[in-house]
Simulated assay, not measured.
Amino acid sequence: MTIARRSTLGFALAGLAAPALVRAQGSTWRPTRPMRLIVPFAPGGSNDIVGRIIAEPAGQILGQPIVIENRAGAGSVIGSDAAARAPADGHTLLINSAHAAVPAVVARVPYNAVTDFEGVAVAGFSPHTLVVNPRFEARTAAEMVALVRANPGRFNLATAGIGSSVHIAGLVLTNRLNLQAEPVHYRGGGPAVAALVAGESQIGTPTMASSLGQIRGGGLRALAVLANERSPALPDVPSATEAGIQGVVLEEFFPITAPRGTPPEILAALGAAFRQAIQQSAGRLTEMAGVAPRAGFETSAQVMNLVREGVDEYSRILRAAGVQPE
């Protein structure tokens, strides 16, 4: 069960910098007031971190500040719905790594994740991690599996909200490994990680962006990076394959979208600015959030094709795991 759509091209994005800059300078559209980038989760999660890294340089390129607006609730549905209903004038954008996951988990979504949005850019890709509270008895993934199986229902599994990619990663983990852990849904990746650090929940599958600081600082113990290979951001943490939990390989991606009907010339200007900002911030994204930018998303259609593929892939994974939308 692997969500992996394109091989990482890393700093091949450098080749995109020059054309992106030309397009940004050549476009006639510019925002006329401060813009807002809606993050549909509480502060401190992966979308909040990634959004703040790229918002400042993108705003400098466009000539107006980009303000982060955290609108948490319903596993990102509330904030995403607000973005879908916003005027299609280029002044409201959405960054949501759960955008493609929500339709696979939530039965009644008030918007269409594909047709109610236009693609702007993709900030990057990042694997999930398997972490535990440092006081948790298990020190390896194999020990964690044995302990949870021996104590069904005793331990809590922290998620970033129903429909979040963290929720789906937890579902894949428990279904694939035949584990019984009680899911506890928080209002974003930041609160979920805070609950793990505090011991309210014992096990989690957070995104690398939201958990990296606590892992490095000792607030969380990482048992595995849920990827086929180790991450440069956490070189001492085994991959899922090395940890013996094959099949639990998941990554999130960060699409930046605008409301449906945003004019093509505005999308072109926004896309060029954000791609340039992402390229400029590639080192910070990897170091601070474990997020790797990739080439191949230079048009609005390419961004939305990735979202469409994600909706299909998440749905396939969860239906295979016996999970139906609620």
Rank of each mutant, 00 (worst) to 15 (best):
A224E: 01
D312V: 08
G75R: 01
R5K: 10
R187H: 12
A12S: 13
A181G: 06
L234R: 00
Q180Y: 10
I38N: 10
R71N: 10
P235N: 11
E56L: 12
I266K: 01
R260T: 03
V109S: 04
G217M: 14
G296V: 05
G204C: 07
G310S: 12
E326W: 08
Q246Y: 11
L306Q: 12
R260Y: 02
G170M: 03
V120P: 06
S165C: 08
G261V: 05
L93T: 05
A272N: 07
F155M: 14
E118G: 01
N228I: 07
A83L: 09
V122P: 02
G79V: 04
G153Q: 12
I203M: 02
H128S: 08
A142S: 13
N112Y: 02
P103Y: 04
A113M: 06
L16S: 12
P103V: 09
V102P: 09
R308Q: 15
A192M: 15
S7T: 14
V67E: 15
E287C: 01
G51Q: 04
V193A: 04
A82L: 15
I256Q: 05
L250E: 12
A268S: 15
F136M: 13
L147V: 12
L267R: 09
S97P: 03
G45I: 03
L93N: 08
A277L: 10
V303F: 11
M1I: 07
V323G: 07
G271S: 15
L16H: 02
P259R: 06
V249N: 10
E326D: 13
A138V: 13
A121N: 10
G44E: 08
E265T: 12
G219K: 13
P263M: 09
R275L: 11
V197F: 07
V50A: 04
F253S: 06
Q180I: 11
L62R: 00
G296Y: 04
S7N: 13
T159C: 09
P183C: 07
A138M: 13
I68K: 05
T205F: 01
D312K: 13
Q279C: 01
S27D: 12
P238H: 14
A192V: 00
A195T: 05
R139S: 02
E242Q: 11
A198T: 00
G10I: 00
E56K: 14
L223Y: 01
G244D: 14
R149E: 09
D236F: 01
G188I: 05
L147T: 14
A101G: 06
L37C: 06
G188A: 05
G283S: 13
R52Q: 14
E252Q: 12
N151D: 04
Q214W: 07
Y186L: 11
N96C: 15
Q180P: 00
L9C: 11
P34K: 02
G219L: 06
R294M: 09
E137G: 14
L37Q: 10
L157Y: 05
